[in-house]
Design a protein around this nucleic acid. Sequence first.
RNA 1: GGGAGCAUAGCUCAGCUGGUUCAGAGCAUCUGCCUUACAAGCAGAGGGUCCGCGGUUCGAAACCGUGUGCUCCCACCA
Length: 887
Amino acid sequence: MALSIHYQPEKTEQQWYSHWKSSGYFRSVPDERVPYAIVIPPPNVTGVLHMGHTLNETVQDVLIRRARMNGFNACWVPGSDHASIATEARVVAMLKEKGLDKSSMTREQFLSHAYEWREKYGNIIYSQIERLGCSCDWDRVNFTMDDHYYQAVIRTFVKLYEKDLIYRGARMIHWDPSAKTALSDEEVEYREVHSVLYYVRYRLEDPPDPSQPWITIATTRPETILGDTAIAVHPQDHRYQDLEGRYAQVPLIGRRIPILFDPYVDREFGTGCLKITPAHDLNDYNLGLKHHLPVVDVLNPDGTMSEAAGRYVGEDRFQARRKIVDDLNSLGLLVRKEEIQNKLGYSQRTEAVVEPRISTQWFLRMQEMAGPALDAVMLGDIRIHPSDRFINAYKNWLVDIQDWCLSRQLWWGQQIPAWFDASGNFVVAEDEEAARQSYRKKFPGSDSPLTRDPDVLDTWFSSWIWPIEVFRGITEPANPDFAYYYPTQVLVTGHDIIFFWVARMIMAGFEFENQKPFSDVYFTGMVRDKQGRKMSKSLGNSPDLLDLISRFGADSVRFGILISSPAGNDLLFDEDSCNQGRLFCNKMWNALKLLRKWGDSPFEGGNEAIPKDLFAVLWFEARLREASLQVQTQFDGFRISEALKTLYRLIWDDFCSWYLEWIKPARDQSMDAYTLEAVFGHFESLLQLLHPFMPFLTEELYHQLRPRGMGDDLMVRQSLPGLTEPDRDLLEEGELAKSFITAVRDARKNNGIPAREEIRLGVMTSRREVYQRMSSVLIRQCGSISLEFTAKPVPDSIPFLCGKDNGFLIATTEKGLPDPGQQAEKLRKELQYLRGFLETVDQKLSNPLFLEKARPDLIARERQKKSDTEEKIRSLNESLKHIQPST
RNA sequence: GGGAGCAUAGCUCAGCUGGUUCAGAGCAUCUGCCUUACAAGCAGAGGGUCCGCGGUUCGAAACCGUGUGCUCCCACCA
């Protein structure tokens, strides 16, 4: 069957994927092999795969496929995250479109809509992961809202509560007015924005100087003026010394508030007077506590003004700000406005400006858990790659850790297992029955009905046990899977969730299992576009993965994202790199066509098939080993992108451009059986090395190369080329052959001798046997009819230099070659360079300090350099002598 | 305000233990080739103040200090 001109991924990818899947290759169960487990960072259940995922999943698949080929029991656990706040926001929006309002339905009704949504869209992400070729064990899919998982989350909550690590209390927290829920500190993103600083006059009561009846404060949030309960100045601020013990009036509402002295106030900022609104600012809250100030909350949970805001009630906070500024202005209380830069907190999920808000929530004490998590990384029990950048951040976060606000005022998630009686007493238990028992014990005699806390838990409180519970480590702690796979090997994720997820998983690992969750963490960079901008929906610069795959093929996309991905650095993604991947696929496809052609017309010359180009075969053998070792080293250091580059060069340059050309039979000849078998074997080794990166292409080529029996699939072939030291001499000789051929091509080009014009070659060398070994390769590749050894320069030839050896292009006809004057010029330049080089070497060698202090082997190397260079110069001079007469 | 990282060819980046892997790779550019696997290809070439300054050293792209310029993280200055 004739092979198509180009590789056609669309014809093979889906087919191979289903073959692998139905053959059970993705499935992993405990056995006697060493496990190699990776848990996927669970994408949001209703999300689609973006380029960041593409990078992460590809890296994971590369690691897991390579581990599988290396004989490990590789297990990649897929799954998804219920993503409480993000998903709930989307479901609410979807309902709104249908004319339904969350607030008018029961929890059960809402959840049934949410589950319906999940049923409808929750599997999209999995099919995209499949399209990418990921070898996940699909029998192990976990979802953070699965029954067992839900149960596990509840159980950990109860455990921590019983250890007194979870508490409930009123604190100032970050509030998302759009999602109407509390957030953790980590879910707030600060952005630099342009703001207006308003200078507002407050009337002083009984002013010490009646001509100065005002005190002016500066604020960026005039709408919170209505919640002011004091004004503060610095105790040493001479401007305000006479205000001690006096009172001022809040504009618009006339509330009487004290003027306090507190060193917290920055005298340099604004007017040096600070308005204090304990309900709406963390610092003010703390000052309020210190000075026993009342708290006036002027905002509703949805960000509108509350009853306390008087006539502004019901207005949106930003609307109210404008109105209040207008009102202050018309009352003559607005002194001036000033543009300033400041930072505002935004909700990571909804983009709403967060409000500091006093609220009763559930918190987890983190201090105690931070210790083991810190030690694990600092002592190297868990290794972070690349380490330098992230260890510090990790350390700082843990050292200065804050308690974790766990509760969210949402419905989509694990409902907090706390039950309250009518008077606010509560118990924490795994289920209602247990809660009742516990309640009776704790509050004997009281028989109030119990209602469950309506709030759910932070999504990250469920994902932090991911590496444990995907193996049922919490709900069925004694099960064999958990014992076998935990701890897992590698976690591959973006560095943006180091605190959200990675640090907390490490804590959970030690807290619940007394054991790290993984040994290595590999942080990928953020995927950016060509101009370095973050990929985002609003910029429209995030390519559609399925579209990319349909245009380039999954392997090319994998290639494209990996080749531009230096470890840990942000990567600038450009479609062109996928195209480069596509060209690479074609290159290999064409190599296959060549091999097939050779295989189709085998050598007819009898049994004594003497390999003509044994040198080439042995050289490539060595080169393959060398590259395999490099690749292994690169994998060991998680330099995945480098490993792919190594293979790319090995395949394109060494295999295709050199090796295949070297062994290519002459036009009317066939390939001998030995070489044929060798090159087929080499190709298979290359396919295997490349398979983790480009699984579809390599599997297809593996089967196209020759017929295979049942179950002989590349994906499960477990014999990666052995890691034995290559023959260094052979490698060096291969390089010599390459540079000789290049030198001849260069000389041809410089002297206008077409590639097909026959020549003879002469070489003046001390390594005759080496040249003899590769002579057939050199002769053919140089378009020569012979290679002659000569003791002195050949007259009327074009000389060139190859290493220390002199080479000569010799004419085969009477007509001769063009005037070598051109070439002489080139050689003179070379000579000049060599003389300069020799000078630097001589300088070193004549420096007594160098001879005294440098390592002996380095001195020997310099001496070698010197004699080599001198020899080259001698050779060149001699060649030039023979050219000169004719110029 | 605190901390971290980066600066090497037009672009994106390697360069690990200071010295023959030392100034590299890919892409881009230029030149010549429709050579019987591949023109989506082949062959060849050009291209650099290794950010500036100072120091350590026999020797620095690499180590130290410093300046400059980007990037990121953390932090409650209205």
